[in-house]
Design a protein around this nucleic acid. Structure first.
Lengths: 101, 101
DNA sequence: TTGACATATCGTAACCTTGCGATATATTGA
DNA sequence: TCAATATATCGCAAGGTTACGATATGTCAA
């Protein structure tokens, strides 16, 4: 059983694992879910996630830092939105996989 | 902007996050990738992942413990296989999402 | 300019994960 | 039974992640 397989490059796997680690938090999944419905300001996201604003900020920063979200200031508020268009599909895929555990 | 959204139950999000955390490791992604091609014994998986057998064992145990993999002993070796049929699709989805970062 | 609101950043302690080495268990054939 | 092979389990130290509270920065309207 020494046949060799064609495997994904380790770099790609590391990148994928990094991306998953960023998603692997209930609050952050919730944020992605919320932002699938449109742009929202931090305090609104925090409220929907039932988190203190500062914590929501931290999570949003992490997601943005990995290119999953983006943000734009509009006056006093900062609106976050999904930056990677494939994210919604991934979230749906995650749901259908994990629910069937 | 106080309209309410229909959100996924927190329990489901926690379960999904847990599942993602388990997948969020390059070696474990590699293992899923390998097992998408069939059943393999621990030492072979370890070799393909370039890991010591004991570490491969640990990772496999984690994946199995979360219902993602399953195993059967055949004589001296233990063959691991994918237990959740949706896993391959998830891995492909992850790849296409994360590559486009 | 000041106060109020919105967001961002940071330090810290508690907790979790990882890699590693040591050891234990299981199976087979000599 | 004994040695060899295969797998599993465990303890530990190092490093990473989290929630939390404190504080800083940015924006606007009075």
């Amino acid at each position: 059983m020494a046949k060799e397989l064609t495997l994904i490059a380790l770099d790609d796997l590391q990148q994928a694992a990094e991306c998953l680690k960023v998603m692997a938090h209930p609050a952050r999944l919730r944020m992605v879910e919320i932002l699938m419905q449109g742009k929202y300001p931090v305090h609104e996201i925090a409220r929907l996630c039932e988190l203190p604003d500062a914590q929501a900020c931290d999570h949003l920063r992490l997601l943005k830092g990995h290119g999953l979200l983006d943000s734009e200031r509009q006056g006093r508020v900062v609106l976050y939105r999904i930056a990677n268009p494939r994210l919604p599909k991934l979230l749906r895929c995650i749901r259908s996989t994990c629910e069937a555990d």
